[in-house]
Amino acid sequence: MLEDDFCDIIKKARTGQGLSLDRISAASGIETAGLQELEAGRRAPAREEVLALAAALTLDGPKLAAIACDRWEPAHPAHQTAQDVILVRGDIGGYEVKGYLFYDPSTRDAVMIDTGYNPEAMLRAIEKERLTLTAVCLTHGHADHAGGLDTILARHPVPVYIGEGDWTLLGWQPSAALRKFVGDGETIRVGGKDLRFVTTPGHTPGGVCYKTGASCFVGDTLF
Rank of each mutant, 00 (worst) to 15 (best):
T199N: 05
L123C: 06
F223E: 10
T221S: 12
P205E: 14
T134N: 01
G163E: 13
L64V: 13
E186Y: 03
K193D: 05
C7V: 02
A146N: 09
L19F: 10
R196C: 11
D4H: 11
P45I: 06
P74R: 04
H79V: 06
T168S: 15
P45K: 05
L178T: 08
L149P: 02
P74E: 11
R47H: 01
I152N: 05
Y161C: 09
T168C: 09
Y100E: 11
G147D: 06
D220A: 11
K98I: 12
Q36R: 15
D70R: 05
A176V: 06
T58S: 13
G148L: 02
I152K: 01
P45M: 10
H76Q: 13
G191T: 07
I152Y: 09
Q83I: 01
A66T: 03
I188M: 13
G41I: 03
V182P: 04
G116F: 05
P119V: 05
P157G: 00
P62V: 04
G202F: 12
T15V: 15
P119Q: 05
G34L: 13
P119I: 09
P201R: 10
T132L: 00
L153N: 05
D91H: 13
T134Y: 00
A33H: 07
P205V: 09
L51H: 12
G41A: 10
D220V: 01
Y210T: 02
T58W: 08
R47S: 04
V85P: 00
L169N: 15
R130E: 13
R43A: 10
L57R: 04
E96L: 09
G202E: 09
D114M: 01
T151M: 12
R189E: 10
H142M: 08
D109S: 02
K11Y: 03
T115C: 14
K193Q: 12
F181A: 05
Y161Q: 08
L59P: 06
H203Q: 04
L133I: 01
T200C: 14
R23K: 14
E129R: 11
G116P: 01
S175G: 15
R14V: 15
V50M: 08
A78Y: 03
L153E: 00
G185Q: 08
P62D: 03
L101G: 03
L101Q: 00
L38Y: 13
E37M: 11
R43G: 04
